[in-house]
Design a protein around this nucleic acid. Structure first.
Ligand SMILES: [Zn+2]
Ligand SMILES: [Zn+2]
Ligand SMILES: [Zn+2]
Ligand SMILES: [Zn+2]
Lengths: 119, 119
DNA sequence: TCAAACCTTGACATCGGTGTGAAGGTCAAC
DNA sequence: GTTGACCTTCACACCGATGTCAAGGTTTGA
């Protein structure tokens, strides 16, 4: 699929798809005429990237953790350096903190809304 | 407490404390000489703001939801307009989506790290 | 009295994610 | 052939969060 369809199916401006590629998050094949050519799997992948960006992760971090997210059941030895593993552990902990913060505050909002709806 | 102590106790640059005030997230009393004077409770409040910012919420949204987070057990009638309630519900749902995304991806990272540590 | 450590406001810069548009190539339909 | 819809790269702009610095006032202590 070309960039237009991927853009449409993910709700992502073409500009950003090119930006994510520039940042190394996605990689497109090229057709004979130079057009980008995306595999079907990129729909999910782009949505995943968008979701992670929305939760506060940077493209730099996403780039580092993405390979492990996609195929978590196999070790990527090229990335299994102590530094990368430390980064992954640190990111895992930061995400846990984010989840706690989000959950607590979302529950407070929900509680407030319920109270208002009862009044 | 003055801005320096609040900065130190929350790990937040003074610059940002003034910025949060400018955005209406916090409000400081003033001493006779013009210095900002913060109540003890601002330590938690600033940490809460920082946490929410880290999870991808903007200062504008945080400003809207903060009053309901702090005293969720009472209705703030001045803010209980249909628009504000709709925003709160929408934000609650977005936060739920963020939590799901973060949880799924964090679990994948954790799973990967466990596998590596076993190998 | 002077220095150091605070504080003030204001301006300007940086950085990442994003918007927008120019200038031009490709392709399908008419 | 021409038109319109797609694609390319490139550049410039914008916005929110943050860094940095200047110029100056206040307080505390040598
Ligand atoms: Zn990996
Ligand atoms: Zn929090
Ligand atoms: Zn409220
Ligand atoms: Zn996700």
């Amino acid at each position: 699929m070309r960039i237009g369809e991927l853009s449409e199916r993910t709700g992502t401006p073409r500009r950003l798809l090119r930006y994510y590629e520039e940042q190394g998050l996605i990689k497109a094949d090229r057709l004979a005429n130079g057009y980008r050519d995306y595999d079907e799997a990129y729909v999910d992948r782009v949505l995943q990237i968008r979701g992670l960006l929305d939760t506060g992760l940077s493209t730099r971090i996403i780039k580092q953790i993405l390979p492990c997210l996609n195929k978590p059941r196999e070790i990527h030895f090229d990335e299994a350096t102590p530094e990368t593993l430390a980064l992954l552990a640190s990111e895992r902990d930061r995400m846990t903190a984010r989840i706690r913060c989000l959950t607590r505050n979302r529950d407070a909002i929900a509680e407030y809304l319920e109270m208002v709806s009862r009044a």
